[in-house]
Amino acid sequence: MKTTEQLEAKLKRRSKAAKLEIWGRLVSLTALMLIVAVVVAIIGFVASKGIATFTSNHVSLWDFLSGKSWNPGVNGANGKPEVGALPMIVGSFLITILSAIVATPFAIGTAVFMNEISPNKGAKILQPVTELLVGIPSVVYGFIGLSVVVPTTRAIFGGSGFGILSGTCVLFVMILPTVTSMSADALRAVPRYYREASLALGATQWQTIYKVVLRAATPGLMTAVVFGMARAFGEALAVQMVIGNAALMPNSLVSPSSTLTSVLTTGIGNTVMGSLQNNALWSLALVLLFMSLVFNLIIRLIGRKGRLQ
């Protein structure tokens, strides 16, 4: 009887391990709460500032999204401030989509080579090279863009050389490693037995890659591309250096234009907090934030769809 009680007491006593457990949970919970708080604070701050354009400066949302002239300090012909963000929105989307279109075939091709055709060389040469590309600071990309891409564009197409085309070229190289390494991960996740099944049926290696591996990896590849687009959409410095920074509707790929980010980086230091000029920039930031949430949402949706298959 005594021993039973002893045993019970012993089992019910909080052991050192149990205390450590609680402590561990507490630490990770705190970390989590902190991150959630930071994210909420950022969204709250950007939103409150960004909305001020519409609430305290009485700019209509529609004018902001569809107006074609951006000149926050000046009132237009209709007496309202000129805060049309459409040129920047168009510029951002155009440059994002174009660079994704150019980068995707290269990225998937490289990933296929790394993973399917020559895994040895892929692991020894291509993997480190891709990782190196990720590590290069964006100002270096921008500088190379400024001193190589812009003059080349100028020589071929005339004009100043600044514009969407130069931006696309720079962004293409910048998002390539992201898309490549994520595509390679997606291909690596395709089980080996899929390939074996296909080869054993007499399919050639190319047929296996094309009909089996790429098909099975499609959700992962799409995620990779959207990630690349999210990166392109948010990239500021390098784009700002080569796009020309003219808040005009891009009428060709080689005319100076601007993106949401480039206007933000050039403008934010030159405005006074609380002024319309400043608030309008915050509104652009809000659009950026909203778009990155949309990109995240798309990635999640693709991931879920991939799992359901």
């Binding site: 089980p191 037995y193 899929y194 074996e196 099944a197 296909s198 054993a200 049926l201 007499g202 089996v212 098909r215 099975a216 298959q309």
Partner: peptide, 11 residues
């Protein structure tokens, strides 16, 4: 032709 240890139908 060959059939493997683990059933491996394509998706």
């Amino acid at each position: 032709g060959m059939v493997f240890q683990r059933p491996n139908p394509f998706a």
